[in-house]
Amino acid sequence: MVAGHSVYTSSNCGKVDKEDSWFLESYQKHPGQASSFVTHIQEGVEIVAKDNEALLLFSGGETRKDAGPRSEAQSYWTVAESEGWFGKEESVRRRAMTEEHARDSFENLLFSVCRFRELTGSYPRNITVVSYDFKEERFKQLHRSAIGFPESRFFYSGTPGSSTSKEAALRGEAMVRSQFQEDPFGCLGSLRRKKLGRDPFHRTIPYPNGCPEIKGLFQYCDPAPYPGALPWG
């Protein structure tokens, strides 16, 4: 799963590594930011190309009002397409799909698991997440633990962010991580408000349709671990 971070807005796919080709929030407007998105996309393609049984999911909803009703997931798929799947089109393109509703990192993971079940009829045996290196603890410890996925089958591929924004990114990550520590399912307070703000087009989330076995996980909202049975437990 490649977690989306922005929406591609350029009509010219020859500019995928240029900041003005993406809709960037103020904290993202740094040299090298666009290239970091492309690196994530390529990393996802490279990982899936090595495993003929793997599925590549680009995850991220229509999160930016001023970018229009374009999803982060479709943006990443479009960039991969424009780049010829980085030389791996024959082996990867047919196995590259989108999850177009996630509004934060926890939903990137949970919704992608459901989308995988919807597409294949089963749940993933292994999960590999591609995102920034400084988000590894958030995904591997907090989000993975919240959905009860076995640590031995969960992998993370982190890439560096823009060097000019590293200190600010680390400060922001520390704050978000502490919020998820208190609210693992992102369903209360500031995390809930953030998600609502990232749904400017008021999309109806289809899940848990497609993954009925984990309906309880979608409905759960408590600081304590989810007490129900899970398909991968």
Rank of each mutant, 00 (worst) to 15 (best):
Q42M: 08
Q42T: 00
G44Y: 03
G44K: 12
V45Y: 02
E46N: 15
E46V: 07
I47K: 15
V48E: 09
A49T: 03
A49P: 06
K50R: 15
K50S: 09
D51F: 00
D51K: 04
E53I: 00
E53M: 03
E53K: 13
A54G: 09
A54K: 06
A54T: 03
L55S: 07
L55T: 12
L56H: 10
L57V: 06
L57Y: 02
S59K: 09
G60C: 13
G61S: 09
T63Q: 09
T63C: 07
T63F: 01
R64Q: 15
K65V: 09
D66V: 06
G68I: 12
P69M: 11
R70G: 02
R70P: 00
S71K: 02
E72R: 07
Q74W: 00
S75C: 12
Y76E: 14
W77D: 11
T78F: 01
T78Q: 13
V79H: 03
E81C: 02
E81N: 13
S82C: 15
S82N: 09
E83N: 13
E83Y: 01
E83Q: 15
G84C: 08
W85F: 14
W85N: 06
F86T: 10
G87A: 14
K88C: 06
E89G: 02
E89W: 02
E90H: 07
E90D: 15
E90L: 10
E90T: 13
E90W: 03
S91I: 15
S91Q: 14
V92Y: 07
R94L: 01
R94H: 10
R95P: 06
A96N: 03
M97S: 05
E99W: 01
E100W: 01
H101N: 13
A102K: 07
A102V: 06
R103S: 04
D104S: 08
D104N: 15
D104M: 04
D104W: 02
S105M: 05
F106C: 10
F106Y: 13
F106R: 07
F106N: 05
F106M: 11
N108Q: 08
L109W: 01
L109D: 04
F111G: 05
S112F: 01
S112Q: 10
F116T: 05
R117K: 15
R117V: 01
E118M: 12
T120A: 14
T120I: 09
G121A: 02
S122M: 04
P124H: 08
P124V: 03
P124N: 11
P124F: 01
T128G: 12
T128L: 12
V130N: 07
S131T: 07
S131G: 07
